[in-house]
Design a binder for these strands. Structure first.
Lengths: 225, 225
DNA sequence: AAAGAAGTTGACAATTTGGTCAAGTTTTTT
DNA sequence: AAAAAACTTGACCAAATTGTCAACTTCTTT
């Protein structure tokens, strides 16, 4: 029962499946346990490196039970992957034409950093999947990402056209923002070394947000003369 | 023989073991073949996910022969990992106190991007190792990284103290530069989607360098007023 | 050219792994 | 409360995987 509580709590903390364990109690709860454990393991080891006994152990269920809900390792993996895209472009909503560029980009950076910190395992899983070639991301998911990116690039272009920011390649700018905001969660070990700390705290994330926005915003601001 | 040639060529292209196949011909050549193949496979699958038959096949040697040179998968992995740190901090030499900040940082970004592009597999392997918790990086290697980072942070601080750039947290700035310069190699699939291309070419890397330096350098430049 | 060292190889053993299943228990339905 | 559905579980199997090895070939030394 301690297991149930902690598993549910962990799941609530992460972004995985917001629905509570009320309508379809047992199945929903166990699937959640498994997926939460799976995200953690897959995020470190990848599809081929993860052992399903490990996932079973981490979820508190015997292996046979895991196979009662999922018919293969692949199925668990793709189920876990499917959650990722939504949280990926969620922060993107801040980049909208009717906002001031400075506010919008700062809000985006904060949202992205917060998300990376709160859903570190999911962030790592996404990184792992891309590192391995993104072969398990559905075509629909990748299309969606491309569409959203193009759409948001037009917002940046419009800001530049309106003289609100310097002209810049929007897509490379997005890559810059993605890479740095995800870095702290994906490569925490390296970030700790670089910052000379044992683990990243809220203060570090705050300083990260400050440094990123300071640098990028100043870099984009129009200079008269 | 076509195999030998291509393996040697691939090895020369990558940063792995510069020594030619002349002083200790057979052993050196085969170890190189194996390590080159291993970096490629490990960079995608990680230590647990990689199968040594895969490495054997990719190196063109039968599995038994691989075990003639290495006594375990772990040993191949750590041998491959040990090469990484040098190429990691190589670009860092551009950040030196006697240069102008603008030149230095631009040179650093270019060097880092070039290295990531030329040694894509090694870059991915490094990323993979950190993602999994950096448990196979030697203590010496991590100490070295910490030391170099601190040293270079002092250069940034000195530039700021001399009024050459805006005050900034040097360590977070480094993280920003690392993350974005490595992104194109590590997450090529995502970069392609973002840039709406099928594969990254020299032009894309060039535009990346331009956008990064434009943004970061303008962000750091002192404004009178 | 003979002998010893170095390298090659496929077949083999031991272990791990993904996945199944039949026999049980618990929960839900009627 | 009985029957049906849903869930649990450890034992089990087949395939995959790591690592070994003895017989063999090629190179180096003298």
């Amino acid at each position: 029962m301690a297991e149930e509580l902690s598993a549910t709590h962990a799941a609530a903390e992460k972004g995985l499946a917001a629905q509570a364990a009320s309508d379809e109690p047992i199945r929903a709860r166990n699937v959640l346990k498994i997926l939460t454990a799976a995200v953690e393991i897959f995020s470190r080891k990848g599809l081929d490196g993860a052992r399903i006994v490990e996932i079973a152990k981490a979820s508190g269920l015997p292996k046979g039970n895991v196979y009662y809900y999922f018919s293969s390792k692949e199925e668990i993996y793709t189920a876990a992957i499917d959650h990722l895209i939504h949280s990926w472009d969620d922060a993107f909503r801040h980049i909208s034409a009717d906002r001031e560029p400075g506010d919008a980009i700062e809000a985006y950076v904060r949202a992205k950093l917060d998300n990376a910190r709160e859903n570190a395992a999911e962030t790592r899983l996404f990184a792992n999947e891309i590192l391995q070639g993104a072969e398990h991301l559905s075509v629909a998911a990748r299309d969606h990402m491309r569409t959203v990116t193009s759409e948001k690039a037009r917002v940046i272009d419009a800001w530049a056209a309106a003289g609100k920011i310097e002209k810049i390649d929007a897509r490379h700018l997005f890559i810059l923002l993605w890479s740095v905001t995800q870095f702290y969660a994906e490569f925490e070990a390296l970030a700790c070394d670089a910052l000379n700390v044992d683990e990243l705290t809220a203060v570090d994330y705050d300083m990260a947000a400050k440094t990123i926005t300071q640098t990028v915003l100043r870099g984009l601001m129009i200079r008269l003369s």
